[in-house]
Computed example of a mutant assay.
Amino acid sequence: MTHSHDAHETRAEQLLRAAALRVTGPRVATLDAVRRHAHADTETIIRAVREELPAVSHQAVYDSLHALTEAGLMRRIQPHGLVARYESRVGDNHHHLVCRSCDLIVDVACVHGEAPCIRPADPRGFAVDEAELIFWGLCPDCQAGDVAAPAAS
């Protein structure tokens, strides 16, 4: 009988092999951590990987993040002014909402569906195949906090 954890590792191993990457403990654990923690920063991912592999080095996780991103198994995003974040949602055409107050990042679908969902007015000869949009604002929790703050003063 296969345990659900074993089945998940098998899926991670299949993804690594399909991407022509060597299957290693840190890579499997890093892929799993990014899947469990959408838009997590590196430190959060390191902590999550260490839950599975307590002795893993920072460098092994950094190397895994780089290899998995290069292979297209995860995506690195870095909204202006924030540390890099990682997500396992790849291969679709989505963008992000970012809260200016608490740095919450939320996926948002593109209105037009296929990539790129927007095109520059003058692509200057570029063959555009992707557009990355970041929408900035305040999340509902921070909006509620900002409304309450002036009343408390």
Rank of each mutant, 00 (worst) to 15 (best):
L104K: 13
S88T: 12
H96F: 13
D92F: 08
E87Q: 05
Y86C: 06
L97E: 10
R100I: 06
H94P: 02
Q78F: 00
V98I: 09
A84L: 07
R89Y: 07
Q78V: 00
V106F: 12
M74P: 03
H96N: 07
G91W: 06
V98P: 02
C99N: 06
V98R: 00
L97T: 09
V90K: 08
H95K: 10
G81F: 12
V83N: 11
E87K: 00
C102R: 05
D92N: 07
I77Q: 01
R76T: 03
S101T: 15
Q78C: 04
L82Q: 05
H96P: 03
L73A: 03
L104C: 11
I105S: 09
C99Q: 05
R100Y: 07
V98G: 02
V90E: 05
V83K: 14
D107N: 14
L73V: 03
I77S: 03
H96V: 13
H94N: 08
Y86W: 15
R76C: 02
L73F: 05
A84N: 06
G81T: 10
D107I: 05
R75N: 01
M74D: 03
N93L: 04
H80Y: 09
L104N: 13
R75V: 02
S101Q: 13
L73P: 02
I77N: 01
V90L: 10
P79I: 02
A84T: 09
V83S: 12
L97I: 12
H95G: 10
H94F: 13
Y86R: 04
R89I: 11
V83E: 10
R76K: 07
P79C: 01
G91E: 06
H96K: 02
V106T: 15
D92K: 04
D103K: 10
H95C: 13
G81E: 10
D103V: 04
S101R: 14
Y86S: 03
R85N: 01
R75A: 00
R76E: 03
G81W: 14
C99M: 07
H80F: 12
G81L: 12
Q78H: 00
P79L: 01
R89E: 09
D92G: 09
V98A: 01
P79W: 00
L73G: 01
V106R: 14
D107M: 09
V108W: 11
G81K: 13
V83Y: 07
V106M: 14
D92W: 10
C99Y: 04
Y86Q: 05
V106D: 15
R75Q: 02
H80I: 15
G91T: 06
I105K: 11
N93I: 04
V83W: 06
V83L: 13
N93Q: 08
R100D: 14
V98Y: 00
V106N: 09
C102V: 08
R75I: 00
C99P: 07
H80W: 11
H95Y: 10
L73H: 02
I105P: 02
D92P: 07
D107G: 14
H80P: 03
V108R: 13
D92L: 08
H94L: 09
L97F: 15
R100H: 13
D103W: 07
N93H: 14
P79K: 03
E87V: 06
A109R: 12
G81Q: 13
R89P: 08
V90R: 11
L104H: 13
R76M: 04
D103F: 05
V98C: 01
V98F: 00
C99L: 09
R100W: 11
E87D: 11
V90D: 04
N93M: 05
R100F: 10
H95L: 09
L73W: 01
R85A: 04
L82E: 03
E87F: 01
N93S: 10
